[in-house]
């Protein structure tokens, strides 16, 4: 019984993290049809910005709990700066090109940003782990968990709910949905698609940076943390169905739970988890869990 509780808790914690790193990717893909490899770099930027701001914050001796707001702020700043810069400065020249070309562009961008990070922050690690232990611990199923893990869950949940509300309840959000379903018709109906693109990309970048910023307190922030994140995020997005927020959430949850079960029961298979889940899901639902009906064009 205890093991089941632990698996569920571990699964949800990992799922929250997965959702944070993949929700931005699914949003960007849904709207812009761009598979953004540089998503990993935005995550890295978020982690570095979060870590260096938190270090500076604690250096001044401010109210420790405020560091969570600092992390949030770091993500917003990174998103607001890098999002429009990348979309306006680079990606918009690529619209109308083949999807794979846009992939190549984001890959080139990823390579560039890897070194930009090194030039700006150096290669020495950044440690911002103070916020991790700050909230204390809780005992669940006989095991100690840091409250921070549940903060991560709350952040992921909040980000998901806010995004969902934005997409379904606001006027601009509905325009986004219109563009997701059919960019051509939307343009014809007078939707300013390029504005939708900037906003969507910026939001996606913010989410990636949010994932990075809230991961920073758990890790040593070093160059090269992007690569692992990219394939995980891609897998979750494909499992959920491209462009589907609910899908990303469910996909993250499934992967999280399966992985936690593997770790506790059959650790040898941990490496395979995400790929096996992806293969099985695609076998059953070839376009992911929440795939939209696609019109076949003749």
């Amino acid at each position: 019984m205890n093991t089941l509780i632990i698996i569920a808790v571990d699964g949800v914690i990992f799922a929250s993290w997965l959702f944070l790193i993949s929700s931005g990717l699914t949003l960007i893909y849904g709207v812009m049809r761009i598979l953004n490899i540089a998503h990993g770099s935005l995550y890295t930027l978020g982690a570095y910005a979060g870590a260096s701001l938190v270090i500076a914050y604690f250096g001044r001796g401010f109210w420790p709990q405020g560091s969570y707001l600092v992390l949030l702020g770091a993500a917003l700043v990174v998103g607001l700066i890098s999002g429009p810069l990348i979309e306006r400065g680079l990606l918009r020249w690529m619209y109308g090109r083949d999807q794979v070309f846009q992939l190549l562009v984001t890959y080139a961008l990823f390579l560039i940003l890897e070194d930009v990070v090194k030039l700006v922050w150096g290669v020495n690690p950044y440690y911002a782990y103070k916020p991790y232990g700050l909230l204390g611990q809780v005992r669940l199923g006989g095991i100690i968990y840091p409250w921070y893990s549940f903060l991560l869950f709350a952040v992921a949940l909040l980000a998901g709910v806010l995004l969902w509300l934005f997409v379904t309840r606001t006027r601009f959000g509905r325009l986004v949905v219109a563009v997701i379903y059919d960019p051509e018709i939307s343009t014809a109906m007078g939707v300013n698609v390029s504005r939708v693109f900037v906003v969507a990309f910026t939001l996606g970048a913010m989410l990636a940076a949010l994932g990075g910023a809230f991961t920073a307190p758990m890790i040593a922030v070093v160059p090269g943390i992007a690569v692992e994140v990219i394939v995980l995020a891609f897998a979750v997005v494909v499992i959920g169905g491209l462009g589907s927020l609910e899908g990303a959430a469910l996909g993250a949850l499934i992967v999280g739970l399966v992985r936690a079960a593997m770790v506790h029961v059959f650790p040898v298979l941990e490496l395979f988890t995400i790929y096996l889940v992806m293969a099985v899901v695609l076998l059953v639902r070839p376009h992911g869990l929440f795939a939209r009906e696609e019109v076949r064009r003749i």
């Binding site: 598979l35 891609f234 494909v238 790929y275 293969a279 070839p286 376009h287 992911g288």
Partner: peptide, 23 residues
């Protein structure tokens, strides 16, 4: 499979081989 689903499924199969070789 087509499009990204082909891409990701082929990636998954290749990664499973990677895992097998590693293990």
């Amino acid at each position: 499979y087509r499009e990204i689903f082909f891409a990701m499924l082929s990636l998954a199969i290749s990664m499973i081989l990677y895992g097998v070789l590693l293990k």
